[in-house]
């Protein structure tokens, strides 16, 4: 069959192209531009080549932050994905419970990041916070401002509270799309509760789980607002993630060149990791 090329179609995608150009491509190119030059203000630029990149890649500060990011994302995925699946499995499928649960689940998602940060910042305070003060009263030594472990626990708890709902909602959508006949057949076949999960529910949730893992990985890897509001990256550097470090470098120290180089490295890491996740998780589809 011969294809006819219709160039008019380009006009239809032109508005989107322009929008993407202004919102993504041009800013990205600006960053690329900064990353290979040095400036001392006054709009004067000097060619720096790959200096900034090698400086970033050889700095322990960068690798430490990257390590924290990976560790954080790993913990987030290990908690939120199983927990999300577990909650989704136990949500009602019929009746008045459905809308009630859905609204409850959607609530954390509707709260802006900085508000979530502020809520937990107050919640965890030892002097007035419900959580911090209660723990203190119970004799548990908890202080996210001074103790790095406590700071981590707080940030992780906050993220789990904020984002597990997303996993729940995605999994729930996958679960309700399974026809009743599958459950009936499983009963006839004498399948155990675990077998129903393993051979019916999990395979049917696979696609939404892929999306959930991708979204949660990318989001947790880019986390900024909540730890910035709660801990400000501290105590010390213990919760300084790449994004926080980046902002410190760009805004705090006004090192535009290194910051731009770091953004590009950061961006490439996320791109690469997402691609790896996607390829690994869809590869089982291909074999037959």
């Amino acid at each position: 069959m011969e294809k006819t090329w219709n160039n008019k179609a380009w006009f239809l995608v032109l508005p989107v192209l322009l929008l993407v150009a202004f919102s993504a491509v041009i800013p990205l190119m600006t960053v690329v531009n900064y990353s290979v030059q040095d400036t001392f203000g006054n709009n004067e630029f000097f060619w720096a080549g790959t200096d900034w990149f090698s400086q970033i890649l050889s700095s322990p500060r960068f690798w430490d932050a990257l390590g924290r990011n990976l560790f954080f994302s790993l913990i987030i995925l290990l908690i939120e994905i199983p927990l999300g699946i577990f909650i989704a499995l136990n949500m009602p499928k019929h009746g008045i419970g459905v809308p009630v649960c859905l609204v409850l689940m959607a609530l954390p998602l509707l709260i802006p990041w900085n508000v979530v940060g502020t809520i937990w910042q107050v919640f965890g305070r030892v002097d007035i916070g419900l959580l911090g003060h209660t723990l203190e009263a119970l004799g548990i030594d908890y202080n996210y401002v001074r103790n790095p472990t406590d700071a981590w626990v707080t940030v992780i708890l906050m993220d789990v509270w904020h984002w597990t709902s997303l996993v729940v909602l995605l999994c729930y959508a996958g679960l309700v799309s399974i026809p009743d006949a599958y459950y009936q057949a499983a009963k006839i076949d004498g399948a155990s509760r675990w077998a129903v999960f393993r051979y019916i529910q999990l395979p049917k949730m696979k696609r939404v789980l892929l999306i959930a893992v991708l979204l949660r990985f990318m989001d947790s890897f880019m986390i900024y607002t909540e730890p910035f509001v709660v801990t400000g990256g501290g105590p010390g550097n213990s919760t300084t993630f790449l994004s926080i470090d980046l902002v410190k470098m760009a805004i705090g120290q006004f090192d535009l060149g290194p910051a731009a180089a770091m953004s590009i490295i950061y961006f490439l890491i996320i791109l690469l990791m997402s691609w790896v996740f996607y390829t690994v998780m869809t590869s089982s589809d291909a074999d037959a």
Partner: peptide, 12 residues
Amino acid sequence: AQVFQFPVIYDT
């Protein structure tokens, strides 16, 4: 044993 109108198979 019961067989349903639409095929039920265990995909994986």
